[in-house]
Amino acid sequence: MAQIKQDMPPEGGYRPIHFKRIPCKTFFSGAAIIGGYVGMTAGAAYIYYLNYGAVFRRELEVKGGSLAIYPMLLAERDRAFLKQLRRNRDEERELMKNVPGWKVGTWYGEPVFVGPEADKFHNPSISEYYVHSSYKDMKKIVNMQFAV
């Protein structure tokens, strides 16, 4: 018959249970974190302010340079534009010469714009301006600033 041995705690009892909370090591206090955040934001805002002015002046100068040459470019563009309008009109006259009742610049004699001034200049739309050229040529210029 086997001896019954009661399971008992070790001599002197168990070790104490660790229940005390061990917090993380703190490097900064709360006030230091908030103060640091405010200070860094203020410093960054000041640097941003300086940089903003510099970028603004730089872009202003570039824009000024473009404005200075704008009249020259516009004058050149106007002459090329008017030449092309004449070419377009000649092309349309040549193309539609066999169509009875067709009048150039109108829909069988019905004008697009009606008004008191007969000679008023109406800017043609971009698709009208490029109507006698290929779509590829129109696509090249359709988003450009100086186009029609």
Partner: peptide, 13 residues
């Protein structure tokens, strides 16, 4: 179709 025969366009010269 806004440029009609009545519209005065300057010549190429």
């Amino acid at each position: 179709m806004t440029i009609t025969e009545a519209t005065e366009l300057p010549t190429d010269e």
